[in-house]
Amino acid sequence: MNSEILLEINGLTHAYSGGLFRKTTVFEDFSLSLEGGKIYALLGRNGAGKTTLLNCVLGLLAYKPGEVRFRGKVMTPGNTHQFLQKITSVASPAEMFPGISADSYVNSHRKIYENWDTELENRIRSMSDFDWTKPIKSLSTGQRMQVLQALALCPEPELLLLDEPLGVTDPVVRKYFYKNLLSIVAERETTVIIATHLINEIANLFDEALFLKQGRLVMRKGLMEMQSTYRKFVFGKLPDVKIEGEAGRLIGDAAIISDHPEKTTMDLQARGMKFKPETPSIEDVFEAFA
């Protein structure tokens, strides 16, 4: 098992300016360290800082103070490009040159990167149903995403940063994207950070979920740990008072999430309330904490 630290973020602070004197802080003294060979789900509500965090790691956004280390080496503005041989990301389709064909994109990337997995490239091509010699502007957003996926997966990255990598693609494309992703993860122990709102889709994929809330890491757990720590109590009607062990409420489901199931059970029995305990889904945990 590969369990050395791959990525380390120390004391990262990022603020963006809205004007000369107005600054909005997204992260303040944020730290995180991730092990190699694992899949991490980066989860959080809109505006929690998922994209900002990934862009800081990629060097697309500046941070001060703070430090990002990859395999122990500090990334600086001057050397970021060397790390980017091993850290890839799926760009947004809007960033693509409209006049260039998918083929030219792939060919130029193949030359820019030191390694290139031609077998994977062919597999992605064979799964696609469009003409790669056509310019990007004649492809649909979903088809552009497929090109971008090839560009991010084929350079044999050690760290893959995926920010909503599937956008508006159809279920077949999604399915094979995950399968390709899993095959490279299993083969090369690639570390993946995947930020997405489609939590259920990745529930069986990640080793650990990182819950971000307003720029802070509020929870870091694997699915099994989550489901053994927390329990969902469903009611006919939500209790008006805070129940013992209650960690969060799912108002729509008339349920609570408890981090002390025994205490909660006892409290509920003492109050004479009817309830049904359940194993929470990842979406339940997300709603309660993120």
């Binding site: 694992k38 899949i39 399915k175 899993l182 095959s183 993860v185 299993a186 083969e187 069986n204 994929l205």
Partner: peptide, 17 residues
């Protein structure tokens, strides 16, 4: 293999491992 099973079931290879 771990890889085949992970890809076929669409689950994390570490889970299979």
């Amino acid at each position: 293999s771990i890889r085949d099973l992970a890809v076929r079931l669409s689950i994390n290879p570490n889970t299979v491992g």
